[in-house]
Design a protein around this nucleic acid. Structure first.
Lengths: 243, 243
DNA sequence: GGGGAGAGATGCCGC
DNA sequence: GCGGCATTTCTCCCC
């Protein structure tokens, strides 16, 4: 165990990634307090100080520590503990190690960033480029207007020169989306001193409650789905290999 | 490589957890589309079919597949791929393996659930038990009222018999929290046919914009922090050692 | 560093 | 399964 501790402390100081498979008990104190009874888990400590504890099922880590945390193996009363702390954020974690199934340390090299398509931002751009997706009379105005009046996805006007605020959601529109749209419309009305500003929620579908609230507020829903850009970077795909 | 593939496919069918350290390229298609150029990553496949891909830094997985996904090692044109799919959700991932640094399979036993204190729910209960945290005249009403009118954190009334809606946030109150409170107050007004319903946002702090909107709507902010229940299980801590 | 908002969010609970 | 909502959300962008 002593040698394992040395190995780990050395790896941590070398900023290598460390992967444990252990049987442990965990306490955390910081933004909240938590206790996790004894069980088998995978623990990962990354170069940037991030610590993740994963159970054998589930997508999210059951416990974790943020980037910038410090970690060390400590022996106390003939027991080994993995202690983590982030002093600035006042977060602390103590992992009591009942057994260590295996440990692996490794230097990983990866500075690549993921390329993602089909986001809400892509949706807004698609509508901006192809405003008939909203309606035949919808005319988007300059993108700079978006920043000027906040985080409005697409701002435009109709044939009667009414301003139109479009809020995009990539999946089901919910009550929060409606209140967000409402907030933008009210802000525009106040800042521009307008009586009438249209609000449109663009999303593939909308919950019944959200639709009711939307219509009660005089807004409307337009069914639009986020774009899948496979075709867009089809050429890049070829360059990247015969995938 | 052949033997590794057999090992992995066997482990996957045995519902063991599999941990890879690899150099890979990743494509994903499903709710969105993504491409991640070549680099070193850790891959975890869990018993429930969850797949996680982690880069050497950052808290969130760069790519992932949901619970219920299926995985297999495939050889194609003298290259090994790890293919994952979730047919029902129409999600697909192809991981092109340039190198495998190590693979570990393991059976993990853990059915424990984490105990968490300091959540918004705990905050609401604290206020319900100790209403003077809101004000001297605040009197909470029965908890069953909460479900009847939705997900209101704490519902009560003041000395003048005005209904009071309290929305709790465990950290900074923001614009979304204000619109959420507004939604609850409007719902109560409509369902009960009331003219005046008070709204209170209980949170440790509040952003300037949120405070302005809150006051414009006639609501108010009360500084309350989520409870830390360390003292509740203080005795257990002592048993675990003087960390 | 804080505010505002999205996320391939995930997870939990209730209907 | 969907709806509504919190999350030790995390991450990104912009000020």
């Amino acid at each position: 165990m002593q040698d394992k501790a040395l190995l780990i402390n050395k790896a941590l100081s070398n900023l290598e990634i460390v992967i444990f498979s252990v049987n442990c008990t965990i306490r955390y104190s910081g933004r909240a307090e938590s206790f996790l009874p004894q069980g088998d888990r995978i623990i990962i400590i990354k170069k940037d100080g991030t610590l993740l504890v994963h159970q054998p099922q589930g997508s999210s880590p059951v416990n974790y520590m943020p980037k910038g945390s410090q970690h060390r193996m400590v022996e106390k009363e003939s027991r080994w503990w993995l202690q983590s702390s982030h002093q600035a954020k006042k977060e602390f974690m103590d992992i009591k190690l009942h057994a260590i199934h295996f440990i692996k340390t490794q230097e990983l090299v990866d500075s690549e960033k993921i390329q993602l398509a089909g986001t809400e931002r892509d949706m807004a751009e698609m509508i901006y480029q192809n405003p008939s997706l909203i309606s035949g009379e919808f005319k988007p105005v300059g993108m700079e207007e978006q920043t000027k009046y906040g985080f409005i996805d697409v701002l435009g006007h109709d044939d009667n020169n009414n301003l139109v605020v479009v809020e995009c959601k990539r999946y089901t529109g919910d009550l929060a989306a409606v209140t967000q749209l409402r907030r933008y419309v009210e802000r525009i009305k106040k800042e521009k001193g307008l009586q009438k500003v249209k609000g449109i929620l663009a999303c593939p579908k909308i919950s019944p409650n959200a639709l009711k609230m939307l219509e009660d507020l005089g807004f409307s829903h337009k069914a639009v789905s986020p774009p899948k850009y496979l075709e867009r970077y089809g050429k890049d795909q070829k360059k990247l290999g015969d995938y």
